[in-house]
């Protein structure tokens, strides 16, 4: 490009000298003519080529924004007659800036066109979405958990005499309180069922104790039903002597193991 400029200037200068020399010839006749200057033919100038448009700069500042912030596009173009930026920005001047507020990451393309052709350049404004909110915690089956918690906090174990399954006075008191508790829980939580686990101390045989634990669970269930609780929401299981809460060989421990325990049903 630089070379082209220099060649052009030299040609113009040579042409000017030639015209001046021709004009002087007529006016200065007396003086012996100087030796003819060597004939210098100026080479014909090359046809002027139109310069292709040139995008010198096209940037976004900053190139990365948070959603809701803005970015500035800045550009500089040469040799172009039409400059447009897409994404709704439209025609622009050769040099300029424009503030943009893209909602999502957007690529802007600057197209510069003129007699010499077209130049394009693209710049991307990256929009960082804020981190997504944590997924909503799975809704715990609120009612069941709280009913189960209430049961485990408030229900009392019901204790029995050796090889017996009828409710003693203390057992009736505990069972009565439990029945009130169950009425409350059942009323609040229509899906709730209770499992009565019958247990025995280690002294009877394993086989008979399965039946005895069953009797103990059944006798508490019968009591609850008599108190007006729905039988279909009360399940029973006997663990015999398979699940002792205490393993010492003394009456205090045996008594702890001769009990009905209440757990949430399935």
């Amino acid at each position: 490009m630089r070379m082209n400029m220099r060649t052009l200037s030299a040609a113009v200068f040579a042409a000017t000298l030639f015209i001046a020399a021709a004009g002087c010839k007529k006016k200065v006749a007396a003086a012996p003519p100087p030796p003819p200057a060597p004939k210098v033919e100026a080479p014909p100038p090359p046809p002027p080529k139109p310069q292709p448009p040139r995008i010198d700069t096209f940037v976004a500042e900053p190139a990365s924004i948070e959603r809701g912030q803005s970015s500035t596009l800045r550009w500089a173009v040469a040799n172009a007659t039409n400059m447009t930026i897409d994404q709704g920005v439209g025609a622009v001047q050769a040099n300029g800036t424009r503030q943009v507020n893209p909602g999502n990451s957007t690529t802007y393309t600057l197209t510069a066109s003129g007699a010499g052709g077209t130049d394009t350049r693209s710049v991307t404004v990256t929009v960082n979405a804020p981190p997504p909110p944590p997924p909503p915690k799975p809704q715990p089956p609120k009612v069941t958990i709280s009913s189960a918690e209430v049961l485990s906090r408030e229900a009392q174990d019901v204790y029995f005499d050796y090889d017996m399954s009828d409710l003693r006075a203390d057992a009736v008191r505990a069972a009565t309180a439990n029945a009130e508790l169950l009425k409350r829980i059942f009323a609040q939580d229509s899906g709730f069922t209770v499992l009565i686990e019958g247990n025995c101390d280690e002294r009877g045989s394993a086989e008979y104790n399965l039946g005895l634990g069953d009797r103990r669970a059944t006798s508490l269930k019968d009591f609850y039903v008599m108190q007006g609780l729905p039988a279909e929401r009360i399940k029973t299981i006997s663990y015999g002597k398979e699940k002792p809460v205490c393993t010492d060989a003394n009456e205090a421990c045996y008594q702890k193991n001769r009990h009905d325990h209440m757990a949430p049903g399935q």
């Binding site: 086989e207 399965l210 039946g211 069953d214 009797r215 059944t218 019968d222 006997s238």
Partner: peptide
């Protein structure tokens, strides 16, 4: 076998 029927094994 033994099975609980009507409340008694």
């Amino acid at each position: 076998f033994a099975a609980t029927i009507d409340g008694w094994t």
